[in-house]
């Protein structure tokens, strides 16, 4: 019983997020049912269009748990797409080496940021702010034009549909159309599960929570705070590049303005999913639902048709406000109990 009460606060927030997602979705099915909102494919599209964001939000969650922040991810995604497009289209590099190179760049990017944060003790916000400028500017230095990817191998990855055997519907011509996903979705979900297991069951994962909860105590406990933080930022850089790759599979192009505001979407998703920015608390599955909620709002606006795109921003902000205030109410209630 005591344990149940202890779990309450954070688990409760996560539960609210999940319930909210389903409630929103059911409302959508009722309101836009005739337009096809209830099709399985619409649900799967949420994952398809947000595969990159799922990975980015996952890695953002890890960074937030350590009490840090990374606002460079959006720019890193743009840089990744640009490098991929540039290497494959203008330099004729194969798809596999291009992707490996991009992932390597991500690692190096994370290493530099991690070194500055963990060893030079500069605020993560400032370091990643510089990283954000750097990556976005680099994108522009590589090319200011939009480059579309026409590499066959890459396109075959991007367009390989994976059909589900069930849940199909019969279209007008009488052919059964089964719902499908792209490989990027599967990869994103695998990354999510791996990170979840890592956070929950490995020594590294537990030390991330410990550092976020109280850095001083973690240090006194004998954890190598600096090295753990460095590792987190390296992992984050890698995942940012990886998310960029998945994002690129969806857009198949590279341009300077790409993925602008991505970092804020990732942070908002994590916060909606119950991650605290003070560190120590967070769950990657919460962030997944944060991403899905954002996707649902966008789908709503698409289906509604007459609403303008800025309603997405306003609704997400309103949701953010709701969750943030809820978090603070819970925190206050906890304090009072003490």
């Amino acid at each position: 019983m005591k344990k149940l009460k202890k779990m309450e606060g954070n688990q409760f927030l996560l539960a609210i997020t999940i319930i909210l997602f389903f409630v929103m979705y059911i409302i959508g099915m009722i309101v836009f049912g005739e337009k096809g909102f209830s099709k399985t494919q619409v649900f799967l599209n949420l994952f398809i269009s947000n595969a990159g964001l799922i990975v980015i939000a996952t890695s953002m969650t890890i960074v937030l748990i350590t009490g840090g922040i990374d606002i460079s991810v959006g720019s890193v995604v743009a840089m990744t797409c640009m490098i991929l497009a540039y290497m494959m289209e203008n330099k004729g590099v194969g798809a596999v080496p291009a992707v490996l190179f991009v992932l390597f760049i991500g690692l190096v990017f994370g290493l530099v940021q991690g070194f500055l944060v963990a060893y030079m003790k500069i605020q993560p916000f400032i370091v990643t702010l510089a990283g954000m400028f750097f990556a976005r500017g680099m994108t522009a230095i590589i090319s200011t034009d939009m480059i579309s990817i026409k590499n066959e191998t890459f396109l075959s990855w991007a367009q390989a549909k994976m059909y589900f055997p069930i849940g199909g519907y019969v279209n007008k011509k009488g052919i059964i159309v089964n719902p499908y996903i792209y490989p990027s979705v599967l990869i994103a979900l695998i990354v999510l599960v791996i990170i979840f297991i890592m956070l929950k069951y490995t020594k590294f994962g537990r030390s991330i929570y410990a550092i976020g909860g109280n850095e001083q105590s973690a240090l006194l406990m004998g954890l190598n705070v600096r090295r753990t933080k460095l590792k987190v930022y390296i992992l984050n850089g890698f995942l940012a590049a990886f998310g960029g790759f998945l994002f690129c599979l969806n857009t198949c192009s590279g341009f300077v303005e790409q993925a602008k505001g991505f970092e804020m979407e990732a942070i908002a998703s994590a916060v909606i999913g119950g991650t605290l920015l003070t560190g120590g608390v967070g769950n990657v599955f919460g962030s997944l639902f944060g991403v899905l909620i954002k996707g649902t709002i966008e789908t709503f606006i698409n289906f509604q048709g007459t609403l303008s795109s800025w309603w997405t921003k306003i609704t997400i902000a309103a949701l953010l406000a709701f969750f943030i205030i809820l978090q603070s109410v819970f925190a206050k209630a906890k304090e009072k109990k003490k």
Binding site: F125, M264, A268, V271, L276, S308, W310, K313, A317, I324
Partner: peptide
């Protein structure tokens, strides 16, 4: 409400331009 400043201001960061466009 004692919310971390960055998160608290994230709300208007997202909504501000939206409201202006509205």
């Amino acid at each position: 409400l004692k919310i971390q400043p960055m998160v608290a201001t994230l709300i208007l960061f997202t909504a501000g331009r939206g409201i202006a466009q509205l």
